[in-house]
Design a protein around this nucleic acid. Structure first.
Length: 270
DNA sequence: ATGGCGAGAGGATCTCGA
């Protein structure tokens, strides 16, 4: 009876131009992916390789800048109600849009929020405080969206390992960037608005990661962190058919240091 | 305590990421 699930992926590609052939190849072997949310595109919008995707039938939505940051959405279908940056919802937060890290749009009735949370540098540094302020602003942003829409998918590179299970070796991680208590609390406040860590719900055991340092053979030894997530709203979580990390591209030569994460959503509006 | 690897900018060797 029901139509096929809608498949949405999130992938920090660490430069879309450097990774272009790998991203196209991955879409080629994963033709079921309806929407791919990209982070760290590292390119201004007028330099984004739109044609390469358009030639393959995808619509492309970009929100980027030169050299740093940048997010984009690559979709089989036209997206609706595209909102770029915090200021589309919170005009008073326009200063946090200097760094292009947030792009949201609707597909098949679902509001997809694609984000790239700041790295944070060192604990207590200026960048660290920027990260916490950014996450606090995200909480405000989502509180507004939550009043407007029930079916929201929050996805991207969050640069926070929610629990010790998300780190290959959590020893001393409370003083480490991406795992400090303040970062975890800031992300928990987001989830407490009514979002679900669906991958962890389906995989209560550790050992599953989405990022591995380029250095020291981390991937070969599976010394990773899980920092890339799909967080469906509690209402949408009922319709999740699967959530998987695809480590295949991380094995390729010159890979991104992140792996894509895929979610399936059943019974969406066509 | 530090660097380790990789990308971008710019044209040698920085900054940044996580």
């Amino acid at each position: 009876m029901g139509s096929a699930p809608t498949y949405i992926a999130t992938w920090n590609v660490n430069s879309v131009r450097s990774r272009l052939q790998q991203v196209l190849a991955w879409l080629g072997v994963n033709p079921h992916i309806d929407l791919l949310c990209l982070q760290e595109t590292k390119v201004a919008d007028d330099q984004f390789p739109v044609t390469a995707f358009a030639e393959r039938g995808y619509w492309v939505y970009t929100y980027g800048q030169k050299a740093y940051n940048g997010v984009a959405m690559v979709s089989k279908y036209p997206l609706e109600d595209v909102k770029a940056g915090f200021s589309a919802v919170l005009p008073e937060m326009a200063q946090l849009d200097d760094q292009k890290r947030l792009l949201s749009a609707k597909l098949h009735g679902v509001r997809v929020v694609n984000l790239y949370v700041p790295n944070g540098g060192a604990i207590a540094s200026e960048k660290y405080h920027y990260k916490l302020a950014w996450l606090a602003c995200l909480t405000q942003y989502l509180a507004v969206l939550r009043q407007q829409e029930k079916d929201i998918l929050l996805c991207g590179d969050f640069n926070v390992a929610l629990t010790d299970l998300d780190i290959h070796d959590p020893t001393g991680c409370e003083t480490s960037i991406m795992a400090s208590p303040a970062e975890r609390t800031a992300l928990e406040r987001v989830l407490n608005l009514g979002f679900v860590d669906i991958f962890r719900q389906q995989n209560p055991e550790g050992g599953h990661y989405s990022w591995w340092d380029y250095r020291g053979g981390s991937f070969r030894r599976n010394l990773g962190w899980r920092i890339d997530y799909h967080f469906p709203s509690v209402e949408l979580a009922q319709r999740v058919t699967e959530c998987q990390i695809d480590v295949t591209p991380r094995r390729h030569p010159q890979p991104s240091d992140h792996a894509p994460v895929i979610i399936g959503l059943a019974n969406l509006r066509p």
